[in-house]
Structures are given as C-alpha cells and as structure tokens.
C-alpha cells in the first residue's frame, strides 16, 4: 500500500452533507473487475452533463479545485454502500485526504486501505476551512492545506492549525505502508489455536 507521511495540496471544497458512495462512484461503473482506473468516473453524474461534457456548475470542475488533492466536505461523507470503488475513485483521481466533520464507518475504514487519510475536524473548523477556501477563490486563487500524519495536524500558511485523532494502528499502517494481511498472517498460529479451541476442523492443505 502507498504510505502517507505528510502531504501538501490544493483543497477542493464540496459544500454538501451526506455525500453518498452512489454519488462518489455510480453503480454503472462497479462492473469492472480491476482496482484501478476509477478516477475518470468519480462523481460521474454530478461531474458530467448528459452529452458527456464537464458540468461547469459542479465544484470539482471549477478553477479553485483544479489539481486538488484534498477534499473538503460536510458531515456524514461516504454514507451508503460499502463499495471500496468510492475510495478507489477518489485516490485514482488524485485525492490523498478527505476532511469532513463526520464520515460513514465503512467508507472511513476503506480509506485507510488505500493510502488516503480521512480527517475528522469539528464542524466549526470545517466551517472555517470553507470560509478560507471561499475567500481564496473569491480572490481568484486556490486554497492549500498541509496534512502531517506524524504530528496528526492539518494546517495552512495563514495560521490555521488543528490536530486530528486517528487510530494509532491505522496511523502506523499508513505511515509505513503496511499490508494489513501480512500483519495479520504473522498471527496465523493464534488463529489456528483459536479455531482448534472451538473444535473447528483443522485446515487442509
């Protein structure tokens, strides 16, 4: 897995609550049997008009979000389906972090499997980030943030710094780019013993 230590990038503000995984990656793109190539379909029904051209109204298609790698959204981001295609699409598009007041559980877990950090900040802090992003856009510019997973902080170059909480194990896995399965298989003897205790038949092969 791709590791994550620090990342600085442009912020794409998506001022919506309850963004569900059906919007992040609509179902017509779930039939692929690969993990890659989903970025082109990210937010497809919002991002493109029926004729296939970019929808100028959609936030990600506007100049302030050009080249963005940090997504800023409102609460309950990633609700709905368990599809990991959602973080695959976000990561493939270029996002390395998503900031929101709250996330849906399955989406939150799925992010960590894909080198992407979901960051929960207080609603007031998210409000402040939207204000700063809006002000930068109004001045014709872009807004950038720096995510430091060592220090567990989000900061800009104009005095905003906040800490965020992250499970220590998930953090360590991201910092070191660990494969969860490798880590768990180190304890295969414990799993075997547990199964034997419960009278489960010994594994063949």
């Amino acid at each position: 897995m791709q590791s994550f230590t620090t990342h600085s990038g442009i912020v794409a503000p998506l001022d919506r609550a309850n963004v569900d995984t059906d919007q992040i990656i609509p179902k017509q793109f779930l039939k692929r049997i690969e993990r890659t190539g989903f970025g082109q379909y990210l937010f497809f029904d919002w991002r493109f008009l029926p004729d296939g051209s970019a929808n100028p109204e959609f936030e990600l298609n506007q100049p302030p979000a050009a080249g963005a790698s940090i997504l800023l959204a409102r609460r309950n981001f990633g609700c709905g389906s368990s599809r990991e295609h959602a973080p695959w699409a976000l990561a493939d598009y270029g996002f390395r972090a998503v900031i929101a007041p709250t996330f849906a559980d399955i989406f939150f877990n799925n992010c960590f499997q894909n080198g992407m950090v979901p960051i929960r900040l207080d609603e007031a802090d998210v409000d402040e980030l939207f204000r700063r992003a809006t002000a930068a856009a109004a001045a014709g510019g872009q807004y950038s943030l720096r995510v430091d997973l060592q220090a567990c902080t989000v900061s800009d170059d104009a005095g905003f710094t906040r800490s965020f909480a992250v499970d220590p194990f998930r953090r360590q896995c991201l910092l070191e780019g660990h494969d969860d399965i490798d880590l768990s298989l180190r304890h295969a003897d414990k799993i075997t013993a547990w199964e034997a205790d419960r009278g489960l038949p010994a594994l063949s092969g």
Partner: peptide, 19 residues
Amino acid sequence: GIGTSEVEHVLATQTLRQG
C-alpha cells in the same frame, strides 16, 4: 458490511481488524 480490501483480509485470514 466491509470493503473489498477487508473481503480479501477475511478470505486470507478468516478474521477482521476491528475496534
């Protein structure tokens, strides 16, 4: 429900990493 990486983890280990 779990994501596909977790599906792979369960297939390989019959366990999940969960708080």
